[in-house]
């Protein structure tokens, strides 16, 4: 059975930086949200934690595409992570968590695990 989830509002459109990422704090911890205005979809969300260093830095990496795949490069050791799947292009045994993300009016929402105590309504 799929665990219960909820769509958490994490920031507004004004917080986003075009062609780059920002970090937000969620109940599941730090998440990086990227806004690539020249692509469809334009919003991506992956874990902010760089699995190679353990540091919370992925939102501060350079975005781009490699052979068409949207990616972010870790600012520490420069590995590339697919923004769609979270898979590391240099080492496909490493994968960061990805989050469904949507634009709701002016709000950016992420689908995160629902805490037992929290209501499913956001």
């Amino acid at each position: 059975m799929k665990p219960r989830t909820r769509w958490e509002a994490v920031c507004t459109v004004d917080d986003l930086v075009p062609e780059s990422g920002i970090a937000v704090w969620t109940e599941e911890g730090p998440v990086a949200v990227f806004y690539l205005p020249h692509r469809l979809p334009a919003l991506f969300a992956i874990s902010h934690t760089d699995p190679f260093s353990g540091a919370n830095v992925l939102a501060r990496g350079i975005t781009g595409d490699l052979k068409g795949e949207p990616v972010v490069a870790s600012p520490l050791y420069k590995q590339h992570f697919s923004l769609r799947t979270g898979i590391c292009l240099e080492d496909d045994t490493v994968r960061v968590k990805t989050y469904p993300v949507l634009l709701d009016g002016n709000q950016i929402r992420l689908e995160v695990r629902a805490n037992q105590q929290t209501s499913i309504a956001a």
Partner: peptide
């Protein structure tokens, strides 16, 4: 641009 977590100014980075 220098906000660590844009939605949680008082949140410190746990690592």
């Amino acid at each position: 641009r220098f906000r660590e977590f844009v939605n949680a100014p008082s949140q410190t980075d746990p690592v």
